[in-house]
Amino acid sequence: MATFRPGDPAAVTDLFEQIAPRYDQLNDLLSLGLHRLWKRQALHWIAPRPGQQLLDLCCGTGDLALVLAAKVRPEGSVLGVDAAAAPLRLARQRAADQSWLPLRWLQADALATGLPAASADGAAMAYGLRNLADPAAGLAELRRLLRPGARAAVLDFNRPDPASAAGRRRAALQRLLLRRVVVPVASRAGLGEHYAYLEQSLERFPTGSEQEALARGAGFSHARHRPLAGGLMGLLELAA
């Protein structure tokens, strides 16, 4: 049985290659569809407009990129970037059904995309920062890609602050939900070990205040982390 080690790029890519066919279905089931609401909040911060050139880093199967593309058409465009091939294949298939949307796809590492500096008017990253080998380097690459004043939204699980009693209570609830709900449901699809990785990945993920500090260190002029879903999720709002 494979071991998916947080921070190991090859292992994390392999994980997403394997879960891609069931990823969207499980997202809807495990969040009761609320992930769509959280993504709308990320979109509200980015405020996409017609004509903009936007990025969706760690785009997965492309659901967020599709929504962004509908907002920037007809002159704008969206580039979805992911390290794993299987999610990108699904993203391309979904985009083919809406061929009028201005979408492109790139298989690349979010830590080193190879894209030109200051080439994007905004960016999204949903459930990607936690999976990078170095979140600080990921934020630095994100900042490099953005034009001055551009906005970015980073949506992910929230790691509650262990220094506070409230944070420890939220962390305990989060562990309970992951162990008693998320992993058992995923196990029915043969993906229990894959979703057990979530708890492991949170152990090394920066807290909200730490993400704000990392973002400022990367050169962002504005960085605010907002807890969502009672502190179980978090949205990092950024401005270059």
Rank of each mutant, 00 (worst) to 15 (best):
A84M: 07
A42I: 09
D82R: 05
L68W: 07
L55I: 13
A85V: 01
L88T: 06
W45S: 13
R40K: 15
L68S: 09
A70C: 01
Q52I: 01
A95K: 10
R73A: 12
P74F: 05
G60F: 01
H44I: 12
A85F: 01
V67E: 15
L54P: 12
K71N: 03
A95Y: 11
D82P: 04
I46G: 06
Q41M: 13
P87Q: 06
R49D: 13
S77P: 00
G51W: 10
R94F: 12
G60Y: 02
D63C: 02
P87I: 06
V78H: 06
D63T: 03
P50L: 14
L55D: 15
Q53I: 11
Q53L: 11
T61W: 07
R92Q: 15
W45E: 12
A70S: 08
L54I: 08
R40M: 15
G62L: 08
H44K: 14
P48D: 11
G60T: 07
R92G: 09
A95N: 13
G80P: 00
A91R: 06
H44R: 15
D82Y: 04
K71W: 02
G62C: 10
D82W: 02
A42Q: 10
A47G: 14
A65L: 05
L57T: 10
G60Q: 05
Q93A: 14
R73G: 02
V78K: 09
G60R: 05
T61P: 09
A85P: 00
H44W: 14
A95T: 13
L90M: 11
G76V: 00
A91W: 05
D63R: 04
A42F: 11
P50F: 14
P50C: 14
A65P: 05
Q41S: 08
G76Q: 00
L55V: 12
A86Y: 01
A95V: 13
Q41L: 14
R73V: 01
V72K: 01
C59D: 08
A42D: 11
T61C: 10
A85I: 00
A83F: 02
A42T: 10
W45G: 12
A83G: 01
D82Q: 07
Q53E: 14
A47M: 12
L88I: 08
A83T: 03
P87R: 07
A70Q: 13
L90W: 10
L64C: 03
Q53D: 12
